[in-house]
Design a protein around this nucleic acid. Sequence first.
DNA 1: TCATCTGTACCAACCAGTCGGTACACAACC
DNA 2: GGTTGTGTACCGACTGGTTGGTACAGATGA
Lengths: 211, 211
Amino acid sequence: MSARTEIEGSRARQSRATREAIVEAATRLMHLRGYQNTALDEVLRASGVGKGNFYYHFRSKEDLGYAILDRIVARFVERTLDPCFSEPGQPRLGQIRCFLDRVLEAQRERNCVGGCAMGNLASELSDVHEGFRARLASVFEAWRGRLMTALREAQARGEVSADCDAEPVAHFLVAALEGAILLTKVTKDIGVMEQCVRELKRYLALYEAGR
Amino acid sequence: MSARTEIEGSRARQSRATREAIVEAATRLMHLRGYQNTALDEVLRASGVGKGNFYYHFRSKEDLGYAILDRIVARFVERTLDPCFSEPGQPRLGQIRCFLDRVLEAQRERNCVGGCAMGNLASELSDVHEGFRARLASVFEAWRGRLMTALREAQARGEVSADCDAEPVAHFLVAALEGAILLTKVTKDIGVMEQCVRELKRYLALYEAGR
DNA sequence: TCATCTGTACCAACCAGTCGGTACACAACC
DNA sequence: GGTTGTGTACCGACTGGTTGGTACAGATGA
């Protein structure tokens, strides 16, 4: 019954590719320029899609905004979060440290350009657009949730001491990373990020079981 | 020689007041909506100043941008940084803790609205406008510098252990605060900020002399 | 009178979104 | 198997409104 499993006609395939091209171009542009300061025409030019076609696939620019947010989150989960936390046998603290390193490496690869797409959107839209704010809040909550479960599992496994309250620690990890990325973006110095991650690991070690 | 100390004519006084009104309104609006998404007309309407008058006082919108940035920084130094670090007798670690609390209280007073004006501008403009980026980078450097000297003085006074490297620690403090403010802005929950500040203090205690 | 201010009318460029119309895959029918 | 009908996918010109910025006449006080 699912359309996805049916044999897809060339028309439907092309249609999906068009939508994909729009979202791809918009994600790239809006990551750098922000949502409000990226003109639809730029996205259209970059993706080679006409105006009418765009409004066939999306109801509005806002609609596109939610689409790129979904894409950003999906990519973050798949490329940064999942690779660290998927293997169940691994020690949890090691997974968290691996995650910190992965975020650092992502900034290095980007040459300190762009910063965190989710953080940028949060900064730009939280006080301007309630819909985006709510969506972004749930994204950060999910991210923090992933860290919280890792921390609680670490406690259950005896890696982390019992006096570690997972919620504030997870909040702090997310906040520190976001701030470090922002500072790296404005200084254009990966060394800042390296120092911050090093200090963040030192903080984390505070809760390591057996002092 | 300084014009500021001369007896000011009513005309010059009015002119300065006009400029002041523009910067004041622009600062308030751009703190919430961002630089690029705040229209000049809005600023003019809010300050009750005409277009021609505006372009008498400012060369361009960009010029206004630098002016509000100066104002934001001056206000931050005078209202948040200076009150904590001005008294030379105080213990340095206490000054830093007082500063963290002050940042937290500022967010509470704002009802988690607006976030950090400098952080917002950094997020919005760092990859779009090199002039602003450079200016913002120097602002964050000055902020970090203030924390660094406090930390070094703390070491000299024996409050902080010798193995504390002031630069990365200061970087981390700034980053963690910026991230915490951002997370608070998007969640609209001051509890997030409280938790982050608490964890940040726990981190800071790592370097307290005598364990 | 003359430089300093200020309001208003205006401009071209740009914005998100609309509209009339076209191309074509695909199915239905004869 | 060709013709016809239909909805999906698409195009680019256009619209009303907004943008940063300019021109300029008039007001004001030294």
